[in-house]
C-alpha cells in the first residue's frame, strides 16, 4: 500500500505543482518582479519630497528561463511534500471508515489550504522580496505550530463526535491571540497596494494548487489497487 501512496502523491504533487506554477507565472511572479524593482531601488515609492506616487508597470517575465524553471521544479517538490502528508492523512481516515473519493479529496485540499496557507497567512502574509521580518527562528516556530494546531482543529470539526467539534474554536483562535512575531518598526519600500495584491494573489493561487492536490491525490489513489 505504501508504494501506491508514494506513486499517487508524487503524480498528484507534480501535476498540482505544474498547475500552481502556471498560475504563479500568470498572477504572482509579475508582481514579485515589480516588488524587486523597489527592493533594489530601481523604482522608489516614498520619494524624499514626501510623494507616494510611483509608476505602475510590471516587468515582463520570460527573460530568465533558468530562474523560472527552478520555480516550476520547486513547486513540484513543495506540492509533492504536502501531497505525501495529505494523502497519508487521507488514507488514515479512509482506514478508519471515512471513505475517500476524489470529491472528498477536494475538501481535504481546501482544508490543507486553510491549515497551511490561510491560517499562518493571517499572522504572516506572503511578502514581497525586500520585506524585512523579525528573527526567522520564532517566525518558523509560530508558522509550524499554527499549521499543526489549525489542522487538529479542522480534524475535530470533520471527525469529532458530539460536542468535541467545539474544541476547535479555541484551537483556531489561539495562534492569532498569541500572535505572530513582528517588528516594532515598518520597513516596507514597496507600495502597500502592490504588497496587498501580491499577498492575495499568492493565497488565491495556493488555493487552486491545494484543491488540485487534494482532488488528484484522491483520484490517483482510488484508481490504484489499494482503495
Amino acid at each position: 500500500m505504501t508504494k501506491n501512496l508514494f506513486t499517487s502523491a508524487v503524480l498528484a504533487g507534480v501535476a498540482a505543482g505544474l498547475i500552481a506554477a502556471l498560475l504563479q507565472f500568470t498572477f504572482v511572479i509579475p508582481h514579485l518582479l515589480e516588488g524587486e524593482l523597489y527592493e533594489t531601488g530601481e523604482r522608489i515609492h516614498f520619494a524624499i519630497d514626501g510623494s507616494t506616487q510611483s509608476d505602475r508597470a510590471q516587468p515582463a517575465i520570460g527573460t530568465d528561463f533558468a530562474r523560472h524553471g527552478m520555480t516550476v521544479a520547486f513547486n513540484m517538490i513543495t506540492y509533492t511534500g504536502y501531497g505525501l502528508i495529505l494523502l497519508a492523512l487521507m488514507i488514515f481516515a479512509h482506514d478508519k471508515g471515512h471513505t475517500l473519493t476524489p470529491r472528498t479529496g477536494l475538501i481535504w485540499g481546501v482544508a490543507g489550504f486553510i491549515a497551511v496557507q490561510l491560517a499562518p497567512g493571517i499572522g504572516q502574509p506572503p511578502v514581497l522580496p525586500g520585506a524585512i521580518g523579525s528573527e526567522v527562528g520564532p517566525r518558523q516556530a509560530w508558522w509550524a505550530l499554527t499549521i499543526i494546531i489549525t489542522a487538529i482543529a479542522l480534524a475535530l470539526i470533520a471527525f469529532g463526535k458530539g460536542w468535541t467539534a467545539l474544541l476547535s474554536i479555541p484551537l483556531l483562535l489561539a495562534p492569532h491571540i498569541v500572535g505572530a512575531p513582528y517588528l516594532d518598526t515598518y520597513f516596507g519600500v514597496a507600495p502597500p497596494e502592490l504588497a496587498a495584491r501580491f499577498a492575495m494573489l499568492s493565497l488565491g493561487t495556493a488555493l487552486a494548487g491545494w484543491t488540485s492536490l487534494g482532488f488528484l491525490a484522491a483520484w490517483f489513489w482510488t484508481r490504484s489497487d489499494d482503495a
Binding site: A20, A21, Q24, V28, I29, L32, R67, H68, M70, T71, A73, F74, N75, I77, T78, T80, G81, Y82, L84, Q117, P120, G121, Q124, P125, P126, V127, L128, P129, G133, V136, R139, Q140, W143, S202, L203, T205, A206
Partner: peptide, 27 residues
C-alpha cells in the same frame, strides 16, 4: 521535501527556490 523546498538556508537551495518560497509564503 518541504525542508528542502521551503526552509533550508543553504544559499544554492535558497536562491533556486526563491520565487516559489515567496509565492508559497514559507518563512
Amino acid at each position: 521535501l518541504l525542508m528542502a523546498s521551503g526552509i533550508a538556508q543553504a544559499t544554492v537551495l535558497h536562491d533556486a527556490a526563491h520565487d516559489q518560497r515567496h509565492a508559497m509564503a514559507f518563512p
